[in-house]
């Protein structure tokens, strides 16, 4: 599908009205960050690639995107919220909505921004900020959605899934992108915190998480306006989780009775 085919179907006001399609890039986030830094980016532009040779997740986690089997795209924002704000909930909620509403997939969110189906990751998000030449702040909202994969190997075998594996249908990345951009625009006007609470179903349910190298049990009891997770430990102590890098929640623990 070419850019003009996508644009002819896209019903958004701003998001994705400028599309930069790459056959193969290192990572769409790197392209977006470079465009923001050099002042070449416009608000709402989208970088999309068939393949990424250096797809990235948070920290050292790599993201398998060498194949053309998923949607690998980065949205550029030149107007954004003062951080910290629950910005990462935004793409996660939009992906969640497309999966649940259009494909009836029982997706749920895991704090702060993973999209899971039956405890397996179907989509991931990497948001980066970088300054613009005029002293403002730009945001690269990277989104990876597994679509056409029929299986995963190695470490991913038990932890990843794809839309194809869930519903047996092949949804082309460009088609998913159109729905996703429309869902993103719809969520611009909605309450992200409320959306996250509903789509994560995490509040008041105990979970297991790896924090500073040790596994702990904790129960989320609230969410701050920035999107930080307030949890109660087993010993009754309270803490606020800020960093998605320092806390890793076990997806298998989320639906335990």
């Amino acid at each position: 599908m070419e850019a003009r085919d996508i644009l002819s179907h896209l019903r958004t006001q701003t998001l994705g009205r400028t599309l930069r399609l790459h056959d193969e890039v290192d990572s769409t986030n790197l392209r977006a960050v470079a465009a923001i830094r050099t002042g070449c980016a416009v608000h709402g532009e989208v970088h999309m690639a068939r393949r990424q040779t250096a797809g990235r997740g948070t920290g050292e986690r790599s993201w398998d995107s060498a194949s053309p089997d998923g949607l690998w795209a980065t949205l550029v924002l030149l107007e954004g919220p003062p951080l910290p704000a629950p910005l990462p909930f935004w793409p996660a909620l939009a992906i969640h909505d497309v999966l649940t509403r259009e494909f009836a997939v029982p997706a749920r969110l895991k704090w702060p921004n993973d999209v899971l189906v039956h405890a397996r990751k179907i989509a991931g998000i990497l948001v980066e900020t970088t300054p613009t030449p005029d002293g403002g702040q730009g945001y690269a909202v990277g989104m990876g959605v597994n679509l056409l994969q029929t299986a995963f190997e190695g470490d991913l075998a038990g932890t990843a899934t794809s839309l194809r594996m869930e519903i047996g249908l092949d949804v082309p990345p460009a088609a998913f992108l159109i729905s996703l951009l429309e869902a993103l625009e719809a969520w611009e006007e909605r309450d992200l915190l409320d959306g996250f609470v509903k789509a994560s179903r995490m509040l008041l349910r105990p979970l297991r998480a790896e924090r500073d190298g040790t596994w702990i049990t904790a129960t989320p009891i609230g969410i701050t306006k920035e999107g930080f997770l307030e949890v109660e430990r087993e010993d009754g102590s309270l803490e606020t989780w800020v960093s998605g890098g320092a806390v890793r929640i076990d997806p298998e623990s989320l639906d335990q009775p």
């Binding site: 030149l78 954004g80 403002g136 006007e189």
Partner: peptide, 21 residues
């Protein structure tokens, strides 16, 4: 009129201000 969730006035009249800058 609908407003984007981030459409709050930026501090000190700085365009695109707030955040780490």
């Amino acid at each position: 009129p609908p407003q984007a969730f981030w459409a709050q006035p930026s501090p000190a009249g700085q365009p695109g201000g707030g955040g780490p800058a």
